[in-house]
C-alpha cells in the first residue's frame, strides 16, 4: 500500500474544544478540554498544537479515573506555549496522543512522591490514585518544592489534601516573606525528617532534572532501591513517535521509553552532561 502523503492516524491531531481555563499563577494555566472518550494513564503526555503556531509536549494533569475533563497544565515559556496558555474557553487545540510510559501501578508498600515546581502536574493523577488506594497500601507521602509561596501549584487543592486526607504532605520553598510559617530550603531537606522504611518504599519523582538527580541520590543513600525510584524525564520531544531521535537519552528514546523511567535504568546517563 502506498502511504506517501498520508500521515499515520497517531500523528493526526484531534481537535478538542477548550472547556475551561484555570489560572494557576502568573503565566501558568490549566486547560480543561472536551476530549470525549480519551484513555490515558497518569504520567503520560500529549502533543498539543495551535494551528499555524507550533506543537509542544505537555503532561496530563488530570485523573483518568475520576470522570473529570482531560486537563493540561501549561506554563508560558516560549512562543508556542505562550499562545497555548493564552487560549480562551470555546477555542480549539489539536491533541495527539497520549504517548509514553506511565507511573507504575500504586505499590502495596509506602509511596513517596516528590514534585518540584510544575512537576506536581504529571504526578497529580498518580497521587489521586494513591489516595483512593490508601486503605490497602502503606504511607502516602507528598513532598513539594517550589520557588516561593506564590508559585505553589494547585495550592487550594493541596490545602484540601492536607486537611481531608491521611496523606503526609510537606511543602518547601526557596524563599519567602515573613508570615510564611512553612519550610524554606531545598526539597531534599524535607526528606531528612521523613523516617522512611527504605525497603518498603517506592518513589515517584517529577521536577527539574537537578532536583530529581539530587533526590534520587539521597533516596538511594537512604536505602531505597534505584529500581523503585521512578523519574519523569523531559527532553525535547518533537515527534512523540520515536522517529526523530530528538529526545534520545543514551539508549532510550524518551517519548517512547519515557517520560517515566526507573532510576536504575537512567542514573548513569543522567550523570553524563553531554546527554
Amino acid at each position: 500500500m502506498d502511504t506517501r502523503g498520508h500521515a499515520p492516524a497517531s500523528l493526526l491531531p484531534r481537535p478538542m474544544r477548550v472547556a475551561r481555563v484555570v489560572t494557576e499563577m502568573a503565566g501558568t494555566v490549566t486547560i480543561e478540554l472536551e476530549a470525549g472518550a480519551f484513555a490515558f494513564a497518569p504520567g503520560q503526555f500529549v502533543m498539543v498544537s495551535s494551528p499555524g503556531v507550533g506543537e509542544v509536549p505537555i503532561s496530563i494533569s488530570s485523573d483518568p479515573d475520576d470522570g473529570t475533563p482531560l486537563a493540561l497544565t501549561i506554563r508560558a515559556v516560549g512562543a508556542t506555549t505562550a499562545v497555548i496558555a493564552a487560549v480562551s474557553e470555546g477555542s480549539w487545540l489539536g491533541i495527539r496522543g497520549p504517548y509514553g510510559t506511565a507511573w507504575p501501578d500504586i505499590p502495596e508498600g509506602d509511596l513517596l512522591l516528590m514534585a518540584g515546581g510544575l512537576g506536581l502536574a504529571p504526578l497529580r493523577g498518580a497521587f489521586l490514585r494513591a489516595l483512593r488506594a490508601q486503605e490497602r497500601i502503606g504511607r502516602v507521602i507528598l513532598l513539594y518544592g517550589t520557588r516561593e509561596p506564590g508559585m505553589i501549584l494547585f495550592d487550594r487543592e493541596l490545602l484540601g489534601w492536607m486537611r481531608q486526607t491521611r496523606a503526609e504532605i510537606h511543602v518547601t520553598v526557596d524563599q519567602a516573606h515573613p508570615g510564611w510559617t512553612g519550610n524554606v530550603g531545598l526539597i531534599t531537606t524535607l526528606l531528612e525528617r521523613e523516617r522512611l522504611d527504605a525497603s518498603n518504599t517506592t518513589a515517584f519523582l517529577c521536577g527539574p532534572e537537578v532536583m530529581m538527580r539530587l533526590s534520587a541520590r539521597q533516596l538511594a543513600a537512604l536505602g531505597v532501591s534505584p529500581s523503585r525510584i521512578h523519574l519523569s524525564l523531559e527532553r525535547h520531544m518533537a515527534c512523540a513517535t520515536a522517529q526523530c531521535g530528538r529526545c534520545q537519552l543514551g539508549p532510550l528514546i524518551l517519548c517512547r521509553d519515557g517520560p517515566v523511567v526507573r532510576h536504575s535504568d537512567v542514573g548513569r546517563a543522567l550523570g553524563i552532561a553531554e546527554l
Partner: peptide, 17 residues
C-alpha cells in the same frame, strides 16, 4: 548552590517552546 541555580524559574528550561 542549588538555590542559586533558580531551578523553578521558566528561564531554566533549556528548550523553551
Amino acid at each position: 548552590r542549588i538555590q542559586a541555580l533558580n531551578l523553578y524559574e521558566p528561564t531554566a528550561d533549556p528548550n523553551p517552546a
